[in-house]
Structures are given as structure tokens and as C-alpha cells.
Design a protein around this nucleic acid. Sequence first.
DNA 1: TATTCGTGGTC
DNA 2: TGACCAAGAAT
Length: 293
Amino acid sequence: MRTMGAMDLHAPILRWYDETARELPWRGPSASAWSVMVSEFMLQQTPVARVLPVHEHWLDRWPTPADLAAEATGEAVRAWGRLGYPRRALRLHAAATAIVEHHGGEVPDSYTDLIALPGIGDYTAAAIATFAHGRRHVVLDTNVRRVLARTVGGAELPGPSVTKAERETATELLPEDPPTAATWSVAVMELGALVCTATGPSCGACPVADLCAWRAAGYPAYDGPPRRAQAWAGTDRQCRGRLLAVLRDTEGAVHQSRLDAVWPDDTQRLRCLEGLVEDRLVVRTGAGRYALP
DNA sequence: TATTCGTGGTC
DNA sequence: TGACCAAGAAT
């Protein structure tokens, strides 16, 4: 059962997207499936503005999956730069290798083949199948979840995990025609990214403000389970970032003393270095010497 | 299901 | 100014 309000969302949002959408290198008919796939890896938990220059360099250097697969994994980690979560670079490299080995070097077009690749979960598989290949899938990312939570659900923010009801709502709203479904998904994502933002939404610029259940309810505050703030200072993540930055910015191997200099806590630094080696982001090349793989 | 995993911008 | 957050995935 769908609400009358939900049905009316389509035309305004599609029109808004047509008039407002950003031109991004991975959008449009000229973008390759590989370009879309690279963008989806980079955009996982990372804003568009920071992805743009790295994506451009990446596609220039490795125009196809085979080009990346032929490189050392450490070059992928280095080219990843400061996007964060560098294991994504490793997974993208591994996915490119699997594409060469099992898919003739072409990015798969089915959700099933895509989600079997490293680094690809439900969202990314649906996004690549939809935006690179025109398949019809529910694309449920944080933007879509927030827009639907507000417009349909009347809540400020979605809960911590995707619920069955949420997926059903998204499924019912997905247009039947595959090309329209693809545009709808990217349009809702764009609305969430530019207007229906997590904090300080621009409801005055929203094409469906007059249909929004959250607005109609008087903007009730989020009342779900409290979400834990992401700790940063002093964490292993910060330490790992420091260590990897040294290796990224160095050609070849570095002596351990270089790593000692960027983190004072010996126990934590050694633990993090071991973790990086375990994760295959770093290799030990000799006694007290480390490098990118 | 709950944690872990980078980095930098915003208000 | 520090809390919050950004096209998630893996375990």
C-alpha cells in the first residue's frame, strides 16, 4: 500500500533533478562502466568534492580494469591519496583482478555478479547495475534513506539499519521503466546530497516540501536509538592513517625510525603497524624496513 | 547486530 | 570549537 503523497513525489523530483543536477564525470552517456564503478568505490563514505580529482587521475592512469589489475596493489594505495579507508583501494584492485579473470575484463552488469566482487555490497552492486548498465534495482544509500524517512516516514532521520518497511517503501516508489528508475534513484540521491541534508536541510529549495511528512508534522526531532559519535583523536584509525601517510609519501621502503617519529605510543604504533601488514596495506621489506605492497 | 575502518569540511 | 557527518563493506 502506497500513500497518495508518495506517488506525487516522482514528477517534482525528476523535474528538479533535470534542472539542478551537477554534471559529474561518472554521470552521462559518455561515462564507462569502469568509471562508474571507480566512482562508487571512492564515494563510499566520502564526499563528491574530495573524490573528483582522485577519480580523474585514476581513470587517466587506469582507463580499464585490466590496466589497474596489471599494477602492484601498492600503487593503488598510493593513488588513493587521502580519500580515507584505504582498504577500498585494495578491494578495488582485487575487484579489477577478478573482473579480468572471470568477466573478460568487462564490468559485470548483473547484481549477482557485482555483489560477489570484493568491496561491493548491496548498495554498490545496485548502483553499478543501475547507473552503469541501466538495470532496475532499488538503490538504497544514506541519501535515499534520509529523503524517504522524511518525505514518507515523517521522521528526521532513518534508523541505524535498513528495515524491511524501508526497503518496501523504496521498492514501491521505484518506477517500472528501467531508465526512469535509474534517473529516479540518482535524483533522490542528489536531492539528499544537496537539499535534504542531514543537518540544516534547505526545505525552501525542496521540490517536494509541500508533500513532506516530516515538514507537515512540524519537524519532530530524531527519536531513534542514539548513534555513537566517531571517536578520532588517539584512536588506532588515526595512528594507522599517520603510518600509511609516511609510506604513501615515500618512494620505496622506509626505516622504522621514520614511523616511530609520527606516533609516540610504542604499543599502539606497533599494534597498528602489524594491523596494516595483516591487512596487506603494508609489507615488511627487510629488518625494520616497510613499504607499500 | 555491533564494531571497525580515514579524512577533512561544516556550522 | 568540537560534534557531526560523507554515494558502505566486512567481519
